[in-house]
Design a protein around this nucleic acid. Structure first.
Lengths: 338, 338
DNA sequence: GTCGCCAATGCAATCGATTTCATGCTCGTC
DNA sequence: GACGAGCATGAAATCGATTGCATTGGCGAC
């Protein structure tokens, strides 16, 4: 593998000039530039990224910490992050939190010791304070979460608006008894989706009866259980606003097992608009989350922070409803109760 | 940020000794080691990874090229890769091929110029030759593909065995007219799954009629279309062995739309055992692919190659069948034909 | 013709580690 | 008591780029 010196010798210039040709900031005579470029090509020269980083104190790497790499969205998220970063010739260094706080912290440490130029963090477990502190040390963008004090460095989806949309849709179809299955309360997106539900109910002058909100785990099985819980509690409902698609599908399958039909007896709206939302019959009506745009914004923003590029554009994105087949007007005859 | 020299001064030793303490290969007196470690702690010292890499000519990074980051399995794949690599204190540098040959090549170039210590490549588009050539330049492990001449550096699943398993299961249930929907023929896993189908059919002495094999795109929609194609061709079938779950689900939903029921009229086996395989009703019987073990093996192997660690263990993994509800004995009255 | 300026380029220090070789010290042996 | 072996440590070269400063040469102004 050839070095900058060999290129310099072949092009009959100094290494400094070769460096200037590569980095292109400083003017170089046309003739010289050509000679250097020829020499580089001829030798198949590849700059040594270690030496470059050492001297320039930049790594051209952006670190990504993800709470769980196999989670929903992560594919879409990574595709879009990677694409944008590579456009800027930056590499993506990935570390997973494996769903544990301590491993998320380790991951951040790990990426910091690699001296990434910037960090993208998607985490539910880390404290707001920890993120604010981190942002003081390194260009940071938080993904899918809004951290007070870090406005402008958080790229996220307006989950409350999504919850509102889902619930309002049910109300518009005539439902009055709408229960809600949420994700874990300690997750911001879960509580915000729930807030949207409350907002829509309140706006419509509908009371949310005691026990009409059930906390799930995001998983399909907890959707099933939530249905049982609601029935056990004796909460009447003709519709369910559900925090994500997996739980919605779980609820839906379980309702069928109980002899209730969707949407005739119970209407259902999911959240996330996963690819498999239409695999159930009827297809699941769901709230679409623009993960791609959120990811693009996040990567754009982290680049702007890390390399003082200019930046403009939104960091908060709104959702929209995708109607399929799980919502219909209530047939009053079928108000469900235990 | 403090440097090795500052640590050395504080501990009253030379930088060389600090280096030796860090790397631990060379013996250092107990008392000295303690002083150095105290100094490191006191200064919050973090070795500069650029300088380290420059001097040692190692990056402690493993590159990962993935044909499409949002593809099925990629989540599971990455979780397992990342976990194993981090255990060895290696970083994972990710680049996507975005489903195009040229961008896969670019990705490899990109990671090579970052001087990764090793490369993990999951690609359908790259030629065998290109991979063999690449392996001569850098420690390489190929994921989910068997490359002649690179035995021992390919971690993959026995797709033929999986195809065989699926088809034999249908045969054992009494089916004689089994059609097949495959993935794109230029993908190795697709053709191998198909080979398994042929193997099982032949073994059972069943002929595969002209037109009973339809090529799809892996996508749900192509499963639907394949069903139409089969009917148009007039191929009789009581069962379908399908190349992946998405197409299987597409076929299944479409069969229902056509008024046929699964499994009474048509039995169905998918492949991949995706999480959502049981979201359809009845749940899809499918062939489970041990992606986790394949990923662990791949990362173990690449580490062994890059850092000459010893290595042993299998690189080829077999599948198993997960029975749900889409297979039943054929009801001869319902042999499907156009 | 000389001076000064500017553009282009070279020189050499620097980044922060690793690693080879040399050195000093201790200890056991004869 | 001298010598050699062996261990712990230090000095200094090295990895391959970047970059501040010095130098050169060409050219226009006076």
């Amino acid at each position: 593998m050839s070095t900058i010196k060999e290129v310099a010798r072949l092009a009959r210039v100094s290494p400094a000039t070769v460096s200037r040709v590569m980095n292109g900031e400083v003017p170089v005579a046309e003739e010289t530039r050509r000679r250097v470029e020829d020499a580089m090509k001829q030798l198949g020269y590849r700059p040594n990224s270690f030496a470059r980083s050492l001297a320039s104190n930049r790594s051209d790497c952006i670190g990504l910490v993800i709470s769980h790499l196999a989670g929903p969205f992560m594919g879409t998220l990574m595709v879009n992050l990677e694409e944008k970063l590579r456009l800027h010739r930056k590499s993506l260094l990935v570390a997973s939190g494996h769903n544990e706080l301590i491993r998320e912290q380790e991951s951040i440490d790990f990426l910091m010791s690699r001296r990434c130029d910037g960090l993208l963090v998607q985490s539910d477990r880390l404290h707001d304070d920890a993120l604010v502190a981190l942002a003081a040390q390194i260009p940071l963008v938080v993904i899918n979460r809004r951290v007070p004090g870090l406005e402008g460095q958080c790229s996220y989806v307006d989950n409350q608006q999504g919850g509102y949309l889902a619930t309002r849709h049910l109300i518009e179809q005539g439902h009055r008894h709408i229960a809600c299955i949420t994700g874990p309360r300690w997750k911001q997106d879960a509580t915000q989706r729930l807030a949207g539900y409350h907002q829509a109910m309140e706006e419509a002058g509908l009371a949310v009866p005691e026990g009409a909100v059930v906390e799930g785990t995001w998983q399909e099985s907890s959707g099933r259980e939530a249905v049982d819980t609601l029935r056990r509690r004796g909460v009447p409902f003709t519709a369910l606003a559900v925090g994500n698609d997996d739980m919605a599908i779980g609820a839906m399958l379980h309702l069928k097992e109980l002899g209730l039909s969707v949407p005739e007896d119970v209407s259902l709206v999911g959240f996330d608009d996963e690819v498999y939302a239409h695999y159930v019959t009827p297809g699941l009506t769901s709230v679409h989350v623009p993960v791609d745009r959120m990811a693009q914004a996040a990567s754009g923003r982290v680049i702007s922070l890390a390399y003082d590029d200019p930046w403009q554009g939104p960091l908060c994105f709104s959702t929209h409803l995708v109607e399929r087949g799980t919502v219909a007007p209530p047939s009053s005859a079928h108000v469900t109760h235990p």
